[in-house]
Amino acid sequence: MGGTPSTDIGPGLGAFIAFFALAIILWFLMRNMNGRMRRMAYRERERIEALEAQERAASGATGAADDAPQDPGGSGPPGRSGPAA
């Protein structure tokens, strides 16, 4: 009974092409995401630098004697205003 055919069937060329296409798509997606993340970080850095420059200009215009950063919203606990007693 050695005449039975082999039933081993592999994924074939279609599966290879599908997997290769998915790999290429993933590569393009990761490349795009990396560029967007770099662009977002660069814009955030520019925004922070602009805010710091604006704060320095505002503190220079008011003639603040100390170099400590000012918190315009108040840094005290909520519900209290004015100097501590």
Rank of each mutant, 00 (worst) to 15 (best):
G76M: 08
A57S: 06
G2E: 10
S81V: 14
S59F: 00
A23Q: 06
L26E: 01
D67F: 04
R31Y: 02
R31E: 03
R47D: 03
A84C: 10
A65L: 13
G10R: 12
D67Y: 10
T4W: 01
G63V: 03
A18E: 01
I25T: 03
P78T: 02
A21L: 04
I17Y: 12
T4F: 06
A18H: 00
P72W: 02
G2R: 09
L26N: 02
G35N: 07
A68T: 12
F16K: 09
D66C: 05
E55C: 01
Y42I: 15
P69W: 15
G82C: 07
G10M: 12
A18R: 01
M37K: 11
A50W: 03
G74V: 06
A41H: 12
A53D: 10
E49A: 05
A64T: 14
M33H: 02
Y42D: 15
A41E: 15
I9Q: 05
G63Q: 08
S59I: 07
G82L: 08
A68N: 08
A85Y: 14
G74R: 13
G76I: 13
G14L: 11
R80W: 05
P78D: 10
F20G: 06
P11Q: 08
Y42V: 15
D66W: 01
G73C: 11
G3Q: 13
T7A: 13
P77L: 06
G60Y: 00
D8M: 10
P77W: 03
G74W: 14
Q54W: 01
E52R: 02
F20Y: 03
I24A: 09
M37L: 12
S59L: 06
G73T: 15
F20S: 11
S81Y: 11
M33E: 06
S6R: 13
P69Q: 14
S6K: 10
P72Q: 05
E52D: 07
E49C: 02
F16H: 06
G82D: 09
E44D: 11
G79D: 10
S6Y: 04
M1G: 11
A68L: 11
R47S: 04
R80H: 11
D71K: 07
P77E: 10
D71G: 09
S81T: 15
R36F: 07
W27A: 13
A61W: 05
W27M: 12
A18D: 04
G60W: 01
R80P: 14
R47K: 01
A50D: 06
I17D: 04
R45F: 12
L22Y: 00
G79C: 08
G14F: 10
R36A: 07
A57M: 03
M40L: 12
A53F: 00
R31V: 04
Q54N: 02
T7V: 09
T7W: 07
A50H: 01
G12L: 03
